[in-house]
């Protein structure tokens, strides 16, 4: 069978589907001061998984606000800088009007994912940290 570390090089999704791959990628991103990109990506996926229902409305609102505050509000943050202004204002509107939809971070997540795929993921595959691991 193909060793996991070779599968990590096939696609970003293969890497993010493996706990060891995530850990190594996160260590690399931390060195580059951009681990927030990965945390934000997973936060968006986790948020989408929370089914809207009466018992967790408060939690979803609190979480949407927390994601907005931590990653999007500060325009100088690594995540915020990679998200289009229109996408940011859409999310801001959702939070202010308390229109909490499971898909409200989808566009932002897509933008961050494209940036990872074009930039940090290829760099990771060429990094010492990955090469040493293999």
């Amino acid at each position: 069978p193909t060793p996991p570390y070779l599968r990590w090089a096939e696609s970003l999704h293969s890497l993010l589907d493996d706990q060891d791959g995530i850990n190594l990628f996160r260590t690399f991103l931390k060195q580059e001061n951009c681990a927030d990109l990965l945390d934000f990506w997973f936060a968006c996926s986790g948020f989408r998984k929370l089914e809207p229902c009466d018992s967790n409305e408060e939690k979803r609102l609190k979480l949407a606000k927390a994601i907005y505050k931590k990653y999007i509000l500060d325009n100088n943050g690594i995540v915020s800088r990679q998200i289009k202004p229109a996408t940011k204002s859409f999310i801001k509107d959702c939070v202010i009007k308390q229109l909490i939809d499971p898909a409200m971070f989808d566009q932002a997540q897509t933008e961050i994912q494209s940036m990872i795929e074009e930039n940090t993921y290829p760099l990771f595959l060429k990094s010492d940290i990955y090469l040493e691991y293999t």
Binding site: D18, F42, K49, I67
Partner: peptide, 20 residues
């Protein structure tokens, strides 16, 4: 603030694959 961070951390973990 702590509980916000906990909530975020829990959300991030919930999206990660389980250790194989």
């Amino acid at each position: 603030i702590d509980s916000e961070d906990d909530l975020l951390q829990e959300c991030i973990s919930s999206a990660m694959p389980k250790k194989k």
